[in-house]
Each structure stands twice: as C-alpha cells, then as structure tokens.
C-alpha cells in the first residue's frame, strides 16, 4: 500500500461509508500520448456527509465526479456506492454543474420535473409538480415556476439546477463547481441556501470547488488532491462547530484553516511561498 502523508489508507473490510473511492487510477488517451490523471486516489464519504474536493486546475476533479456518477469506469480501483460497486449510471445520483444547463424550451417547473420523467417512479404528474414546487420554494424560487430559464439571473438558474439535481431524492448529490461562475455575493447567498437545503432534504454530498472558503463553509471534510496524476494529498475535517454562518469565515480559526489549505494547494502545484515572492519581485 502506498504510504500517504495523512495516513489515510483505504478501509478494506466492512463498508461503513456511503461513497468509497478505493485506490482509483485513471488515464486518458490524448493526441500527445496517455495522460495520467488519477493515481491511487482514496476518498471515503460517510452517509449524510459533505465532502469538498479542492486541488490545482486540471488535476482530475471533474473526472472524479464522472467516476462516482457512473458515467465513466476507472482503469484501476473501485468506486462503491452504498455497498454496491458502481458499474454504470444510477438514478440515486443527482448532479449540478457550473453551467446550469437548463432546457430553454421548458419552464423552470418543467425543468425541475425532468428527472422524474426519466427515473422510474409511481408519482402522478400532479405529485411530480408538487415535489418540484416544494423544492423551488425551499431555494427561494416560488413565483418563478412558469418563467423560462432565459428570464432568470445566473444565481436563480443555479438554484433551479440544484432543485433538478434533488427532485428524485438522490442519495448522493454531486456538485461540480456549481457556484464558480457567480459573483461573490450571489455565491455566498447560495452557500446559505445549501445549508438550508441540506437540513430539509438530507443527502450525501461531493462538492468540487476552487474556492477554499466555500469548501470549509459547506463541507465537513475537505480533500486536497495533488497535482496530476492526483492522489489524496491532504485531508481536513471540519467540525460541526466550524464556519456555518458567513461571519464565521472571518474568525482566526477559519483563517487558520484557510491558511493550511492554501499551503497544501501550493504544495500540490509544486510551489512554495518563496517562489511566489520571487515571481512577484521580478
């Protein structure tokens, strides 16, 4: 077994975690030869947990989401979901991306209903719409059900996208930089909405992000992936007493956490603080 700095090996044996990424390696064939993206990656997420994954650009974070959702199979290693090995797409997963990809020809309500038209269920049309309305209300979009996506702001579209990801009550919510394209204030609004949603609609979350403050605000576990080929470089647990209100992000404790994470990202990028200073001086 490869020794890892945080001493976090794969937990062979009885399954306790809802999402278990075990020793996963993956390569892509590109025109300029094989690209080694993931190298013996291990991540374990408890049921009801919320894990944020941060790392340098191009380190394979999006590949990770495709592996967990079953859209791709890893070359080596295994991905387990609720005690079952992931071999293909499964409807117990909900996804939201940086691009909200709402269908322009459908109303907001019908966009949210979409997964219920695909996942097998016994709900009537009225029940499906009721479920969608409940979620839209939860994220503060009641009154916008009949609008077209083009009539909504970026933040509102992202809220609708979140509702669509949750409408079929998935066990796992995969968020691939969903707030990345929003302005800072809208983003903070959505962070708070996420806390509210998680209380009302429990899920196990996997969040890919570039924003360190976002990671400690939303997640109970932050994973730092190394540069390519990526392995799990560092793991930080954020206790329930961690920053859960926006003001908490400006405490010395939060600053300490962010500092540690920032330092780890620098290591993942293969840089040091001295490099940065030298570069700035030049």
């Amino acid at each position: 077994m490869m020794g890892q700095p945080h001493g976090y090996g794969p937990a062979w044996g009885p399954m306790t975690a809802l999402i278990e990424i075990r020793d996963v390696s993956h390569r892509f064939e590109t025109d300029s030869g094989p690209l080694h993206v993931l190298d013996h990656l291990n991540i374990s997420i408890e049921e009801g947990g919320f894990t944020a994954v941060v790392g340098p650009s191009g380190c394979g974070k999006s590949t990770l989401t495709r592996l967990v959702s079953g859209l791709m199979k890893p070359d080596e290693g295994e991905v387990w979901l609720h005690g079952e090995r992931v071999r293909g797409p499964r409807s117990t997963v909900g996804m939201a991306f940086q691009n909200p990809v709402l269908l322009e020809w459908r109303s907001i309500l019908n966009n949210v209903v979409l997964p219920l038209e695909i996942v097998p269920n016994k709900l009537t049309r009225a029940q499906k719409e009721e479920r969608a309305r409940f979620l839209l209300d939860l994220v503060g979009l009641s009154g916008f059900e009949d609008k077209r996506p083009s009539e909504l702001s970026g933040g509102m579209r992202q809220r609708a996208s979140l509702c669509r990801a949750l409408v079929h009550k998935p066990e796992v919510l995969i968020l691939d930089e969903p707030f990345g394209a929003l302005d800072a204030f809208t983003r903070e609004d959505l962070w708070q909405t996420m806390h509210k949603v998680k209380q009302e609609e429990p899920f196990t979350g996997l969040l890919i992000t570039h924003d360190l403050r976002e990671s400690i605000f939303l997640a109970d576990q932050v994973v730092v992936m190394s540069g390519r080929p990526a392995h799990t470089q560092y793991l930080m647990d954020v206790p329930a007493t961690g920053p859960r209100a926006l003001d908490d992000l400006y405490t010395p404790e939060a600053a300490e956490r962010l500092n540690i994470l920032r330092h780890q990202i620098q290591i993942a990028q293969g840089r040091t603080a001295d490099d940065d200073r030298k570069e700035a001086a030049e």
Binding site: S69, P89, R90, M95, N99, L103, E117, I118, H168
Partner: peptide
Amino acid sequence: EYRDILRSLGASQMTIFWK
C-alpha cells in the same frame, strides 16, 4: 453536460434524443 445529466439518471440514447 446535457447528455451527462440525463445519462447519469440512466436515460437511454432514445430518451436523450427526444427530451
């Protein structure tokens, strides 16, 4: 992403085409 959203729900190619 459009394809991914529907495929991750287990939609067939035909469903993706129509929807």
